[in-house]
Design a protein around this nucleic acid. Structure first.
Lengths: 130, 130
DNA sequence: CCTATACCTTCCTATTATGGGAAGGTCAAG
DNA sequence: CTTGACCTTCCCATAATAGGAAGGTATAGG
């Protein structure tokens, strides 16, 4: 299987696969006589694992750790859980931050007439009028 | 007032001010005899406006528009409100997305023993075991 | 056998909004 | 006149890709 086929099968772009190889997230692929990267089912499993982890918002360094744990038969589930929960905490903070922005903007927008007149609490707030 | 003072007064770094000038978000600063950028109160107002807008998560292109509206005495508040509400919608989608990841991870973590044994629903999910 | 086209390769650029740092000029105080 | 704290420009790095150029390869059809 060459890179385009692997990309289709794993649901990632060929570009990404090369990038993951370049940064060392996946092993250097074997090459065909013509220099084409060659993949097998095991590689697809890794690529799919990476894709799912990315979809869950894990960073590539975190995924590197998760991949290592995944391959380690003697891992402890506690290690995995710790990474996942730390990630959840990060996401929660981000959500809280975004939510507070939403609240602020909605409050401002609610007091903005939204008509053709120039008066606007949103700009007033940005301007720093208390 | 030179850049370091303006930076302190406006609560942004000197680097940022130069960057904002470079990309055209703020006007090219006047220069002193020695070539130092010189700022006045009006510039500080703009920089503070930008800082607050960044804190509310507006992108620089959006801020450019908001700044233009802010300076336009004949603006309509509807234009400002529209940008703000569109931004709110983006934030909401992002929050929803993050929240769904949090829900997934918490569910998986709840079923993960988190002990020294290797069994781990989190890795099982990433692996694609249904 | 030749050619088209659909791949593959590497390498370089761009994205977003900064931060870091080097090399060198300037200014104020002591 | 030196020292230190500024300023200047310019280049590099970040995270995780996408896009594209230039050139090699595999395959199918005529």
């Amino acid at each position: 299987m060459i890179i385009g086929q692997a990309a289709d099968a794993a649901g990632v772009s060929a570009k990404r696969i090369r990038y993951y190889e370049q940064i060392g997230l996946i092993d250097t692929a074997r090459r065909s006589g013509a220099g084409y990267r060659v993949y097998d089912e095991r590689d697809l499993h890794s690529l799919r694992f990476i894709r799912r982890a990315r979809q869950l918002g894990f960073s590539i360094p975190h995924i590197a750790t998760l991949l290592a744990l995944w391959r380690d038969r003697r891992r402890s589930s506690a290690d995995v859980k710790e990474i996942a929960l730390a990630h959840v905490e990060e996401l929660r903070s981000k959500i809280t931050e975004l939510q507070s922005i939403v609240d602020t903007l909605e409050d401002l927008a609610a007091h903005c007439d939204g008509d053709s007149r120039p008066d606007c609490p949103i700009l007033a707030e940005l301007q720093g009028v208390e």
